[in-house]
Amino acid sequence: MIHFPAQRRSPLSALSLRLVAALALVFATVAVVYLDRDGYRDVNEDGLTLLDSFYYAVVTLSTTGYGDITPVSHSARLVNVLYITPARVIFLIILVGTTLEVLTEQYRTGRRLTRWRKTVKDHVIICGYGTKGRSAVSALLENGLDKSRILVVERSSTALRQATAAGLVAIEGSATRSATLNEAHVKNAKAVIIATDSDDASVLVALTVRQLTAGQVRIIAAAREAENAPLLKQSGAHHVIVSSATAGRLLGLSTSAPPLIDVVEDLLTPGQGMALAMRSAERNEVGRSPRELDCLVIALVRRGRVITLTDPAGAEIETGDMLVYVRDDRPQPATVA
């Protein structure tokens, strides 16, 4: 099942608003009838009480109309023409409003689903919307990827609500199943990020994605244990990030070289000062040393291989190289006109 971003207005608030409007209309009709009660005739001919006014208002607005209470005076009939009849129509609209809204929402959802299926392409699939999945989405958004190109696959209803509340399209189901990944249009995806809670599930997801896409879609997976990283790569993952080993290295750095932790956190935290970025080499930069550029280049990516500046191959920039550099990520102050 595909879940689209949540609407701001909840069904409970919409229903409560209709209920209040219906009750207000009933009480207003009772007041109008009771103030002009002398213009109505009851079959008992004992005059209209407040209860009779409520009775007449309810059976009239609901179009039941037993006929035991009728308007006889000119003023009462005029009130029925100018107020009671329009109020009856409005009351019916309020009563069927919930049904109409459900039908309209189903139609709107169907239209959105059809349009989404036609346009979804080069998107990124996030398998798992836990801590790792949410962090991956944040990093993608920080690097300029539009929310419409991010698709979450998750089984947990709580995580699904969080994803749709964040404005993301989510598919309910297990990423280990081919049917779920086909519904996510995995063959047209740009990349699949596997951020499940267990390494076993990550391996199954990687195998399923590789089988469906014939290895044409880039797979990035997270592993809890380093010993499972080779298995994930054999299963089809192009890149594997070992969370436990990375956390252990950071813990070691925090003891032996505390300032390095601040640098790493600065690089990983958006808007703090520094951030890692990558761009294509420009034509006027080809043939020059990466150290001569204005930006701080720390590595080159050439034909899919990372080349450090200490490598002789990284002495000059070649055509088609990607530059990995450190950019200034601090919020820019507003200019005063």
Rank of each mutant, 00 (worst) to 15 (best):
I298H: 05
T255H: 09
D262Y: 07
I69W: 04
V297W: 01
R224M: 13
D38Y: 10
A87Y: 02
E282H: 12
P5I: 07
A245L: 15
N284D: 15
E225N: 15
L17Y: 09
R283I: 15
V306F: 03
N182D: 12
R327G: 02
A206F: 02
V79G: 01
I219M: 12
A257W: 06
T269G: 07
G47E: 03
R302N: 00
V79E: 07
D294L: 14
K118S: 14
G273W: 00
K132L: 14
Q7I: 09
I261G: 00
G128V: 07
S16E: 12
V153A: 04
L309M: 04
K121C: 13
V120Q: 11
A277K: 06
A31N: 10
S198V: 03
C127T: 13
L100Q: 06
V102E: 01
I90Q: 05
M274T: 09
A313P: 00
Q162D: 15
V297F: 03
P230N: 01
D294C: 11
V209I: 09
E105A: 11
V205H: 06
L168M: 05
R112C: 07
R305C: 10
P5V: 08
L23S: 10
Q106E: 09
A222V: 06
A277L: 06
L78I: 15
G173D: 05
T29L: 09
K187F: 02
A163Q: 01
I171F: 08
A57F: 02
G130I: 07
S138V: 13
S135K: 12
A275G: 12
V297S: 07
E142K: 14
S178I: 10
V153T: 03
I126N: 00
R288Q: 14
L181S: 04
L140W: 02
A226L: 14
T98P: 01
V96K: 14
E142D: 11
A299W: 04
A139S: 13
P333V: 03
R249T: 11
T180P: 02
V33T: 06
D311M: 07
L253G: 03
K190D: 07
V153Y: 01
H3A: 09
S13W: 05
E282L: 12
S75A: 13
Y55F: 10
T63Q: 14
Y325E: 06
T310A: 13
E265A: 13
G215Y: 04
D294V: 11
K121L: 12
I150R: 01
L268A: 11
P270N: 10
T63G: 09
S73H: 03
L92E: 06
P259N: 05
S235F: 06
I94D: 00
R117L: 11
L61H: 00
L160K: 04
Q211P: 03
V120P: 03
P86Q: 05
S244Q: 10
T70E: 15
V59W: 00
V81I: 15
L267Q: 01
G271M: 08
A170W: 04
R77T: 02
R149I: 08
K118C: 08
R161K: 10
P5R: 08
A222T: 05
Y129G: 03
P259C: 09
G110F: 08
L253S: 05
F91T: 04
V81A: 13
V89R: 13
V205I: 15
Q332P: 07
P230Y: 01
L309T: 06
H74F: 13
P5Q: 08
A165Q: 14
T196C: 15
G304C: 06
I241K: 00
